[in-house]
């Protein structure tokens, strides 16, 4: 078992490279671009201090920004996600708390918990990302459709990756 810090560093590098080299070249029906890299933030241990999560989010967002020439849009969206994360964790906390759990995993917390957790956070990220990118309200509903479709796509891809990776650990 690799220790927690090394595992997260590897995850950071792999997800950023996969995002900029592979996923940024994928356009489903012309405009849906899955953002898998935020899986890094979602999978940080539950008891990580929120300010730490926020700094890490900023850096992973900024890394993606540097590669895709988007200034600080991914960083802004990721920081917002990190801001929402503690509140959503509190909202969804199971009766016995998270004490014995390190990283969020489908097996321990259940499929429904995981789906709600990921969907809400991905939605918060994509809302900021797409509205900052467009930055005008004349295209409001078109952008909103884009947000919803991209959120669903990202959630599906996150689950596919988790099923592939988390099964192998057993």
């Amino acid at each position: 078992m690799i220790n927690l810090v090394t595992r997260n560093i590897i995850r950071f590098l792999v997800l950023v490279l996969f995002q900029v080299l592979v996923l940024n070249n994928i356009y489903l029906s012309g405009f849906i671009n899955p953002n898998l890299y935020i899986l890094f933030i979602l999978l940080l241990p539950v008891n990580t201090a929120p300010p730490t999560v926020m700094l890490l989010s900023f850096f992973i967002g900024l890394s993606v920004d540097i590669f895709s020439d988007t200034g600080g849009m991914h960083a802004a969206a990721s920081v917002f996600l990190a801001f929402c994360r503690p509140y959503i964790l509190k909202l969804l906390s199971p009766r016995e708390g998270y004490e014995y759990i390190t990283e969020p995993a489908i097996k321990q917390l259940g499929f429904t918990w995981f789906l709600v957790y990921i969907f809400m956070l991905v939605l918060s990220h994509h809302l900021v990302l797409f509205y900052v990118e467009v930055f005008r309200f004349s295209e409001f509903f078109y952008t909103f459709a884009k947000v919803l479709l991209s959120t669903v796509t990202t959630v599906i891809i996150i689950f596919l990756v988790l099923f592939l990776v988390q099964r192998k650990k057993e």
Binding site: G61, G71, M73, A75, A76
Partner: peptide, 10 residues
């Protein structure tokens, strides 16, 4: 941090 991001975007 959002302020930093805004500066970067601008």
């Amino acid at each position: 941090m959002e302020a930093v991001c805004t500066v970067l975007i601008i």
